[in-house]
Computed example of a mutant assay.
Amino acid sequence: MTEDEIRVLHVDDDSELAELVATFLERTDDRFSVHVEPSPTAGFDYLMGNPVDCVISDHNMPGATGIEFLERVREQYPDLPFVLYTGKGSEEVASDAISAGVTDYLQKDSGPDHYAVLANRVSNVVDQARSRRAAKRTKIQLSAIVENITDAIVIIDATSTVRFANPAVERVFGYSPSELVDGPLTRLMPDRFREAHDAALDRYLRTGERTMDWQAVELTGQHRDGREIPISVSFSEFEQKGEPRFIGVITDGETDT
């Protein structure tokens, strides 16, 4: 298997048509490797023992319909791309397929261009599924880093309200994450700096101009017990649901010295 290979399971009781579809798909896109099975039962058995990136299934088959096959597949593989490929479609079949969790739906056609459409549909749903899995893996990895890093990480919105804090904030500032979230960031700084902070944030939001470097800025924070503590902060900006967010990675200067 190569990284780009798309392993397709095609289930259709019409073996001659199934082989024809497999041939056209593999000719249309050299990433495709198509395995054919004649029934939902045989298809499910194959699926249980072999890696598959996408299922293409007929609907009207002896023993079980394509939707019944889809429902069985979804019990074990909720995110596996599944294309219902039927010769006699209807709005009712399409509606039932959507309710059962079908990824895509296409009616059969005899024209050669139709196989290019099918190949495009399959490659699209597989690429999308792979992108979602990659994003999920990245999210898990980033979450593990954020949860275990010794630096405090704080995210604020445009009102300087804390939207996220990792567990390390308690080591640095004495507050648990839940105590900080939805409260003002200024809780973590001495009183004499709070007005200047609010003014600098407001100015940046209006003009986009920075008044200082955002990397490893030496500042003074305030611990929960009232102590002032030296900290080094690196800032960055991102957007979430169309709203600006600011993230600060905070190193406790007392620990480093």
Rank of each mutant, 00 (worst) to 15 (best):
E3H: 07
D4A: 13
H10M: 08
E16V: 15
L17V: 15
L20I: 13
V21Q: 04
T28H: 09
D29W: 07
F32L: 10
S33H: 12
T41P: 00
T41C: 01
G43P: 07
M48C: 14
N50G: 09
D58R: 12
A64L: 14
A64I: 10
I67H: 02
I67A: 06
L70V: 01
R72I: 09
R74L: 02
Y77D: 04
Y77T: 00
P78E: 06
Y85S: 07
G101P: 02
V102T: 06
V102Y: 00
T103D: 02
Q107M: 14
K108M: 06
S110D: 13
Y115H: 14
L118R: 03
R121F: 01
R121D: 03
S123G: 09
Q128Y: 12
Q128H: 10
R132S: 01
K139N: 06
K139W: 03
I140T: 13
Q141W: 12
S143P: 03
I145E: 01
D151W: 10
I153T: 14
V154Y: 07
I156Y: 11
A158P: 02
T159N: 14
F164K: 05
E170D: 02
Y175P: 00
S176T: 15
E179F: 00
L180K: 03
D182N: 08
P184T: 03
P184W: 02
L188A: 08
D191H: 08
F193N: 12
D198M: 13
L201I: 14
R203L: 05
R203M: 06
R206Y: 05
G208A: 04
E209W: 08
R210L: 13
D213Y: 03
A216C: 04
V217R: 15
Q222C: 02
Q222S: 05
G226F: 06
R227F: 10
I229W: 07
S232C: 04
E239G: 08
E239D: 12
R245D: 10
R245Y: 14
V249Q: 01
V249A: 08
I250Y: 12
D256W: 03
D256F: 07
